[in-house]
Design a protein around this nucleic acid. Structure first.
Lengths: 210, 210
DNA sequence: CGAGAAGTTGACACGAGTCAACCTCAGTGG
DNA sequence: CCACTGAGGTTGACTCGTGTCAACTTCTCG
């Protein structure tokens, strides 16, 4: 911690661009960092959004690579940064540090593979359910009547997380609200039945044709 | 090499299942290994297919994890395997070995992210073009009139690589053949114009080989 | 209170999956 | 040598999910 230098980002400020050389290991203190890829036609795809406690650029910095994604702050965000040389020193002294970094990389590899699977097989509805479940795990706060997702969460933002359009997200949320699965408001979601949400995310039973 | 033990697999033989503990580092000598994920509904999604020279289970074995995918042989396949303990010894003696492994992991992370982007934004046609371009890089053999993809490649197989249906693959290939972009036959594809194929793919020329 | 951002809803279009029918080869056994 | 068979491939008809667009409502903030 002592070896780190702090960084401050305003909302929507770009920290690094896809292709930039990686000079530092980053740790999110508060706020969020959205990692996205830009296709050749200029369309942005959100790969992941990381919150407090997450490490960014782990593998790339060990290997001396460039960023595979673009990083943008979501909301006011504070980070800690370790220059590469400093980090390698630290690893020399505490080899477990490398194992910790590799462990998070392994997790993310799993998640990335799972994402590929979801995109290849699932429906927009399933992906929305999955996105909500992830948000619940990371930022859920129990309140009366359900679990609140404790952050400003616009329809567009949620749609990005689920790789769908704001319109589809709006329609699906509206239906779920009608069915009593959750309550929605402006920039706000409260999940009432995590169980049913998980069912929707997992297997799409019911309406199977004869 | 001396420390490795050989393995032999028949066509469609399963080497490991998603969730199995990883005991060895694997190197493909000849043939191919298809890595796939199974969704909760039992649908199989091909994550990647690796050919000769590729390392499998690199990150998982460093971290003592389980396989995130299922591995199946495509065609008669030979592998070399290093038990985990043996590998760690080797890394101790030759630290560059670890860097080499990490380097392939970094490549694959890039590829996985690119795949997410493709699935989220691209059409089936683009993904088919990309799949063919990858095959060209890995197994292209120039013959008169174009570049042959040097392996038995059925429509279903190609469709799997591009995450689409055999029917769509068939239709698209038929059209491309009509347009003189390539020549198709039973289990066989010859690409005539790599340039036009790359244009269709969206000019996403990502480097990095297995 | 006005303006603009956020969200809703309906109409429509289109890509692509599914299914059925069909074609066409490569082997195999009589 | 030929007919049979089955896997591999093609093609058309149909359906459905979901993206796009336009018009509208509702909330928030200065």
């Amino acid at each position: 911690m002592a070896a780190a230098s702090p960084r401050r980002l305003a909302n929507e400020e770009i920290l690094f661009l896809q292709g930039d050389p990686v000079g530092e290991l980053l740790l999110i203190e508060c706020g969020q960092l959205r990692l996205s890829q830009i296709s050749s036609e200029g369309e942005e795809v959100v790969v992941r959004v990381f919150g407090p406690g997450a490490i960014v650029a782990g593998l790339a910095i060990l290997e001396g690579r460039t960023f595979p994604v673009t990083g943008t702050a979501v909301g006011e965000t504070r980070l800690l940064a370790w220059p590469r040389a400093r980090l390698l020193e630290l690893i020399e002294r505490h080899p477990r540090l490398r194992d910790n970094i590799l462990s998070t990389i392994a997790d993310r590899m799993h998640q990335s593979l799972a994402r590929v699977r979801e995109l290849a097989t699932g429906t927009a509805e399933q992906r929305l359910a999955l996105a909500l479940l992830r948000l619940l795990r990371e930022r859920g706060r129990p309140i009366e009547g359900g679990i609140l997702i404790d952050q400003l969460l616009g329809r567009q933002q949620l749609a990005d997380l689920a790789d769908t359009s704001m319109f589809t997200a709006s329609r699906v949320l509206a239906r779920w609200a009608r069915e009593g699965l959750l309550e929605v408001g402006r920039q706000r979601v409260v999940v009432c039945s995590t169980r049913r949400l998980a069912q929707l995310a997992g297997s799409q039973i019911s309406a199977a044709a004869p």
